[in-house]
């Protein structure tokens, strides 16, 4: 190769290298900032949740793009980001104690979409509304899903920042960090591994669904009584450690899921279908009631407690709309339900 050709080849390489660097994205993708803005805009609507002083803007939110964390800096005039070493170098949305405070750590929307698409291929497929026989977008991870996830994790920050003592009382431990309540093995062996427990749980979920969608409070109370009998029967199979683990997950995740779904419902257009349940949802926050809600079926692992806890929140909304105002996470939601329904333990 002649010298001129070599120079020309080198020049092409230099141009390509600089163009590659120049066109490469640095910093947090704009879509994530938009999502954060959307989440903040929900604040006024979310105040209707009734949890005392729960505000998203009180908690630091950081997006993890697979390499770095981008901490959102929300000044009065603009929203910017600050790059830092990742606190958790893994794809997980969580509330984590960082720099002396609980922060929302979540992957970027691009990463989570990639993850959902990988785990649930149907989520990649888009369909037209009339194409009802084809795969739908039930599982699609959207901007709205991400907004709801941020609210979910911010609620965990709220719980852990303000109600550490209440949570410790709930699990009967002096130190939440060292308590063994988050041990999912107990759930797997004692709950999921026992057919009788699973069957009782399925019946309980059906009763919860019935109670949520029932407007007559007397009928709701009857359902709760039936639920109580089943729940007591079920708990006889479980060790006290396992029962504490259940209480922990149901309260912590159930309430956070309730907030998450509320955020999600608030993002939907009025009378639009809730993509997660395929039902027409009319969710009037002022009346704190929900109609025609379908609970997710029994699932193994801890996911069922999100579902059950949320359902219990919705029942409490019916029985005592102000229940959240002084709730300190020290008691099981079902205890409050029995109390409000006038059923003695």
């Amino acid at each position: 190769m002649g010298n001129m050709k070599k120079i020309a080849y080198g020049a092409v390489g230099v141009i390509l290298l600089f163009t590659t660097i120049f066109t490469g994205r640095t910093g947090l993708g704009e879509e994530n900032i938009e999502i954060y803005k959307k989440a903040l805009e929900l604040q006024s609507k979310m105040e209707g949740t009734g949890f005392e002083n729960f505000r998203l803007e009180d908690y630091t939110v950081a997006f993890y793009d697979g390499k770095n964390d981008y901490v959102i800096v929300n000044s009065d005039t603009e929203i910017t980001t600050q790059k830092r070493e990742p606190v958790m170098d893994t794809l997980v949305a969580t509330a984590w104690e960082t720099d002396g405070e609980y922060q929302v750590l979540c992957p970027t929307v691009e990463k989570l979409q990639g993850l959902v698409n990988m785990l649930m291929p149907a989520a990649q497929v888009q369909t037209t509304p009339e194409d009802t026989d084809s795969a739908n977008t039930d599982n699609a991870y959207t901007q709205e899903s991400h907004v709801a996830t941020i609210w979910h994790e911010a609620f965990h920050c709220y719980q852990l920042t303000n109600y550490e003592q209440g949570i410790e009382k709930l699990i009967g431990a002096e130190d939440r960090e060292t308590a063994n309540v988050a041990d999912t093995n107990l759930i797997v062996t004692e709950v999921d591994g026992n057919e009788q427990v699973v069957n009782l749980y399925k019946k309980e979920i059906a009763l919860l669904e019935k109670a949520i969608n029932e407007d007559d409070l007397d009928v709701v109370k009857e359902i709760i009584l039936e639920y109580k009998q089943l729940d007591e029967e079920r708990k006889e199979f479980l060790s006290s450690e396992c029962q504490l683990a259940e209480a922990y997950y149901t309260v912590m995740e159930g309430t956070a899921y309730y907030v998450e779904e509320l955020a999600y419902a608030n993002l939907q257009q009025p009378e639009k279908q809730d993509d997660r349940t395929n039902k027409n949802v009319v969710w009037d926050i002022n009346q704190t009631s929900a109609n025609d809600i379908k609970l997710e079926p029994y699932t193994e692992g801890t996911n069922k407690y999100y579902n059950i806890g949320r359902a219990q929140c919705l029942i409490l909304d019916k029985l005592s709309p102000d229940w959240k105002a002084d709730y300190d996470f020290s008691r099981e939601l079902i205890e409050l339900i029995y109390e409000e329904a006038g059923i003695l333990q």
Binding site: P121, A122, Q124, V125, Q126, T127, T128, D133, S134, A135
Partner: peptide, 12 residues
Amino acid sequence: SIAGKPITDYDN
């Protein structure tokens, strides 16, 4: 078929 549902339209 994805998730047990047929994908038939061209765009997908």
